[in-house]
Design a protein around this nucleic acid. Sequence first.
DNA 1: ATTTTTTAATAAAAATATTTACTAACTGTC
DNA 2: GACAGTTAGTAAATATTTTTATTAAAAAAT
Lengths: 411, 411
Amino acid sequence: MAVKQSIFEIFSEENTSGVAYRNKAFKRAIINHLDQTGNSTITDLAQEMNISVPKITSLINELMTDGLVQDYGKEDSKGGGRKANLYGLVADSAFFLGVDVKQYYINIGLLDFKKNLVKAEMHVPYELSNTREAFDQLVKVIQTFISQLPEEHRNILALCLNLSGRINSENGYSYSYFHFHEEPLSTILEQITGIRTFLENDSRAMAYGEFHNGLVKEEKNVLFVNMDYGIGLGIMIDGKIYRGKSGFGGEFGHIPLFANEIICHCGKKGCLETEASGQALIRLFKEKIAQGSTSVLVQQNKIPDNLRLIDIIQAAKNEDVLCIELIAELGEKIGRGISVLINIFNPELVILGGILAETGDYVRLPIRSALNKYSLSLVNNDTQLHMSKLQEKAGVIGGCLIARDKLLSVQ
Amino acid sequence: MAVKQSIFEIFSEENTSGVAYRNKAFKRAIINHLDQTGNSTITDLAQEMNISVPKITSLINELMTDGLVQDYGKEDSKGGGRKANLYGLVADSAFFLGVDVKQYYINIGLLDFKKNLVKAEMHVPYELSNTREAFDQLVKVIQTFISQLPEEHRNILALCLNLSGRINSENGYSYSYFHFHEEPLSTILEQITGIRTFLENDSRAMAYGEFHNGLVKEEKNVLFVNMDYGIGLGIMIDGKIYRGKSGFGGEFGHIPLFANEIICHCGKKGCLETEASGQALIRLFKEKIAQGSTSVLVQQNKIPDNLRLIDIIQAAKNEDVLCIELIAELGEKIGRGISVLINIFNPELVILGGILAETGDYVRLPIRSALNKYSLSLVNNDTQLHMSKLQEKAGVIGGCLIARDKLLSVQ
DNA sequence: ATTTTTTAATAAAAATATTTACTAACTGTC
DNA sequence: GACAGTTAGTAAATATTTTTATTAAAAAAT
């Protein structure tokens, strides 16, 4: 595969200095520019990048022989003058894989070089646990997905695995899951799949997906709240993922916001997660039922020990009063947590995502009113609050984009 | 002044393109490099910057005729071979002014091009209020300071004014103080003083000072907690000041952490500042006295209506038990607030600064123990907690550095 | 003390990039 | 429909930058 070779040559920083080095940097910058502003003319590129037209021309020509860039024909008329050729990325020249592992299923998808989601398989059944069997099962899911791809979609340059918990995406170690080897998990997966592998925390990957392919337009400072069994936070600062010193940043679920006596699974008391997470929701629901409250779920005999979050969400969507009430309470509490974030970050946009976001206004309105109540109105007025646009696909797309952008050294 | 002319030419981005533009960028990069890693040889610069030796040579020569760079003689021996010349910045080639406005005094100082604090006047008496008189008074303080400088220190390229409250340092507007004109405050000051002027929030300026001239070595993600009458927060992310969308980021004092009924001056209830600020300290002290507690301050008849924070701090330093106790309680509460920050940011370093930091261990130890109690131990263990090294000079130095770095387009 | 090794600085040659000038291609107006 | 006005693309000339080779200077080894 000549194309694949060339691409790696461009994106590796080894064995080059001087002119060759600079040309590679220029090519990456061109790819980036085409990526972000769409197809461009040579004149545009020259102006934007402060390089002369002939130089850009020769770089573009090289990128075309590499198969990464393509001539998309003449520009639309925009006043007088000769029409310029538009150059843009070639969608099919490279692909990236995103693997989003949830508690009870996996979402997996493929992105092309132009950030189109080529294929996605959602809710592949899977049970996440920290065992070798679960890891083998995960590998099998990935391999099956790849094997079912048509030949022309198999030029996969990189993949990203999203896991919850402690992830150090710089060195590729996962501490909460699958930490069986000396080597980083990313290396292990790389050896098995033969594909360059990156790791990322699930909430951060979702934030990245929403940031680059969702509803974010101009904003640079964005918070993504992942409302699932736990409460995750993805922080985008200046257009980049914020990870903190060791990748533990965004432990929003464990800020001490309540004066309760519930021991969180992290060992502390008063964590946000003890009152305002999917887990807490299930606990509170069971408590209410025990106290004699009624719900559709009781009537349907759907309250076994392993009652799932999705059941409560479904019930709420079917107008079950108890579930709706509990979700509103949850929203109020999460809202108080988000107020803290808004005061500290003064973000342009807060995105509500995760499976609980599928309850729509049931959770959004209580959050909104809590924000008014608890955060500085000045700062609050500055901040937009939106529901995730990509919804359950955010993780997959985010993973693909992280794989892509890490390879292109954008991230 | 030939020097001044040249410097501005380098730092303005106007009227240039192509080669000239790139050379300016190169020169700035060289200045930056010399600034951060100290005096360097031409070979070093060439390698670091991926430019050829002759090119660096000619750029350095130009910078020397500009008066910004100087030949510092031969390098120390480091193995065999010919000794290389060391080139470095010229300290006296340019100066920057930092004006740090506090509630009851102003700190003002001058930094040279090599970041040495040439002169500083601390605690110039002043009463901050949002009036034209107070602004005129401020201008007078600045002008007096400048007029007392020796001739060779008057090449001031820029100044930065630190104010508390809402500051948009991008457009130079101050909303909390001196918002009398249509034009941004920075423009007004620029017209009066004839010096390029920048504005910054006081806590952010202190954070910047500590970051670049204090105890920060390698860390890139650092939080600075400014404990004064209010509680401020300076956030350094990836080595840069984080300001948020409109410059309101870091409103740490107003996160809703308490379930009390005290109305904060921001209008909300339960703000951190209502329980854990200098203001709160004074309130609590007066309450205790009213309840019959005793203190050195009472005996000394020092409790008028305008009891100041500095009195309580002094009393604590003189072993006044009540003041020490109250400061410990304050520390515990601030610690709970900082726990939130640590969980969210996973910072490498948290610096305690502001006037209350002068109480040393009296405030540090309760904070430390609160961190252990309230933040995830995993994340907490990752974080160093230190007292400010620059102490009361942090604001002045930070202001000077901001002026310098904004002008050099580093910030 | 002389030679060898190592590194810096400089000069000249080669490679590379930018300007400038020119031609091509298009729009709109008289 | 010719012509003026614009903008794109290309070729040649000019300018700049990098390479390579050479010389200079210092430390280590003989």
